[in-house]
Simulated scan of single mutants.
Amino acid sequence: MAGHSIPHFQNDAGHAAVEIGVKEFMCVGASQPFDHPHVYLDMGDDEEIVCPYCSTLYKHDPSLKADETRPAGCAYHDEAA
């Protein structure tokens, strides 16, 4: 089993761009029932990536922690666990 979990992000407010502190993550779209398949995204050497499902532009900001976003409130936390 992996030693870390992949951060998940959402965009309920429909922001044009969301800054995050990681380059590998999952996008879930928005909260249910407006979510989309949880898609793994990897920026690689780039500093930004667009989700192919919801078109959210994610920008890497290394000053943010793995669970921080700018604007705030875009980190997704599964409440089923």
Rank of each mutant, 00 (worst) to 15 (best):
Gly44Asp: 01
Gly21Asn: 06
Asp78Trp: 02
Ala66His: 12
His15Lys: 12
Phe25Val: 09
Cys27Gly: 07
Tyr76Val: 03
Asp35Trp: 03
Asp67Ser: 14
Glu47Gln: 13
Ala75Trp: 06
Met43Trp: 12
Gly29Ala: 06
His8Gly: 13
His60Asp: 01
Phe9Tyr: 14
Val28Pro: 07
Ala80Leu: 09
Leu64Lys: 15
Ile49Ser: 02
Glu79Asp: 10
Cys27Val: 10
Leu41Gln: 07
Cys51Thr: 05
Ala13Cys: 04
Pro71Glu: 02
Pro52His: 01
Ala66Gln: 13
Leu64Phe: 14
Thr56Phe: 08
Phe25Leu: 11
Tyr40Asn: 04
Asp35Ala: 11
Asp61Asn: 15
Met26Pro: 00
Ile6Asn: 04
Asp42Thr: 05
Asp67Met: 13
Lys59Leu: 10
Leu57Asn: 13
Asp12Met: 01
Asp42Val: 06
Ser55Ile: 00
Val28Ser: 06
Cys27Tyr: 05
Gly3Ser: 14
Ala30Leu: 01
Gly29Ser: 04
Ala2Leu: 13
His15Gln: 10
Ile20Val: 11
Leu41Glu: 05
Glu24Trp: 08
Ala13Gly: 00
Leu41Ser: 11
His36Cys: 11
His36Thr: 12
Tyr40Trp: 06
Met26Gly: 10
Met26Val: 14
Gly29Val: 07
Val50His: 01
Ala16Val: 08
Gly73Met: 02
Ile20His: 08
His36Lys: 09
His38Glu: 11
Asp67Leu: 15
Gln32Ala: 09
Gly29Tyr: 03
His77Gly: 02
Asp67Phe: 15
His36Pro: 05
Pro7His: 04
Thr56Ala: 09
Gly29Phe: 04
Pro52Leu: 00
Gly21Pro: 13
His77Phe: 13
Cys51Ser: 07
Phe9His: 05
Tyr58Arg: 11
Gly29Asp: 02
Glu68Val: 15
His60Lys: 13
Asp12Leu: 01
Val28Phe: 08
Ile49Lys: 04
Leu64Trp: 14
Glu19His: 15
Gln10Trp: 07
Thr69Leu: 09
Lys65Pro: 03
Pro71Lys: 04
Cys27Thr: 08
Thr56Ile: 11
Cys74Arg: 02
Val28Tyr: 09
Glu19Asn: 12
Glu79Arg: 05
Phe9Gly: 05
Pro71Thr: 06
Cys27Ile: 09
Phe34Gly: 01
Leu64Pro: 14
Met43Pro: 13
Phe9Met: 04
His38Gln: 11
Pro52Glu: 00
Met1His: 14
Gly29Asn: 01
Leu64Gln: 10
Ala80Trp: 03
Gln32Lys: 05
Ala17Ile: 00
Asp46Gly: 05
Met26Phe: 15
Glu19Arg: 15
His77Thr: 13
Asp42Trp: 03
Ala30Trp: 02
Ala17Thr: 11
Val28Lys: 07
Gly14Val: 11
Val22Glu: 01
Glu47Asp: 15
Gln10Pro: 01
Ile6Asp: 02
Gln10Glu: 08
His8Tyr: 07
Tyr58Pro: 09
Ala80His: 08
Glu48Ile: 00
Val22Gln: 03
Ala72Leu: 07
Glu48Phe: 12
Pro7Phe: 03
Ser31Gln: 02
His36Met: 00
Arg70Glu: 08
Ser63Thr: 15
Lys59Val: 15
Pro7Met: 03
Ser55Glu: 12
Ser5Val: 14
Pro52Arg: 00
Asp45Glu: 06
Leu41Gly: 10
Arg70Met: 06
Ala17Gly: 00
